[in-house]
Amino acid sequence: MPSITYRKALNDALAEELERDENVVIIGEEVAEYNGAYKVTEGLHARFGDKRVVDAPISEAGFIGMGIGASMLGVRPVMELMFWSFAYVAFDQIINNAASVRYMAGGTINCPIVIRGPANGGTNVGATHSHTPENFIANTPGLKVVCPATAYDAKGLMKTAIRDNDPVYVMENTLLYGQKWEVPEEEYTIPLGVADIKKEGSDITLIAHGRAVITSLEAARILEEEDGIKAEVVDLRSIRPLDEAAIVKSIQKTNRAVIVEENKPFCGVGAQIASLLQYQAFDYLDAPIERVSAIDAPQIYAKPLEDFQIPDASRVVAAARRIL
């Protein structure tokens, strides 16, 4: 099986879906002639032309709203946000219009739009460019949120997102774009709402999404080497829909949970999962649930401090040791 980057996996997914469905159109800042600010759309404009891959002016509210309107008439826009941090200038479109239009129309309208782009800190760019909005996007009924952690997942989830008839928001990670994973050459898709056990274990469960999955895998390796502890790593892959059954099943086996996310803690995804576990797995828990999140301040610029602000393996290991 060939090993390709997370970036290439996304690129392949976009190309395959452009090829498959003539209604798929990619729109965003610098996606066409510039080949993508992070090269995710590299080569697509040359291959598919002006109609299918479109450079937008810097007008997130305008072009995302336009995509929502076009989707109501059956176009399937895949909108790139150069950073999810820029979503906030388009929030009315992203939250009010995309999420609510079907409901307010009594189910007579579909909004098959994908909005994708990186949503991560850790890149030494300060507070405005380092947001991770999966928690409050997922708070909005009508929207779906996907946070792939590997190239394999990125490709399979992206293809599903594009085929989905509801708005699906895909949150990628610039720190993962250049990393490689094995990805099969034959076509595949991954359904939303299905978690993946990235590593099996029996002593404690590390629950994560996005790059925090990679951090958790490293933490699991350390726990095994230094403590002889077998940690299970559950990758949520999609936040909404959420694979609650997989989470509960793992806790029933290990009886201990550490929830890891690169988001800030208050009302984060971890809070939702902690609520789930106390409700559905109360009798299986042998220790309090631990949460590891970004340090609760705006993202700091200074590199060494930001590296500490975002959870690393040592913080996950420390949290695990507190409840073992």
């Binding site: 159109v25 109609k51 509210a61 305008g62 072009f63 995302i64 709203g65 336009m66 995509g67 929502i68 309107g69 076009a70 989707s71 109501m72 008439l73 059956g74 176009v75 009315d92 479109q93 009010n96 219009n97 239009v101 307010m104 129309a105 009594g106 007579t108 309208i109």
Partner: peptide, 30 residues
């Protein structure tokens, strides 16, 4: 709303429908 009559709302936020209008036109052109 009445999409069967090509009537796409009915939007509550001031100006929020204006990009959608551009989008309906974009879809026609597309």
């Amino acid at each position: 709303f009445a999409p069967d009559k090509r009537y796409w709302g009915g939007h509550g936020i001031v100006g929020g429908q204006t990009p959608l209008g551009a989008g309906l036109a974009y879809a026609l052109k597309y």
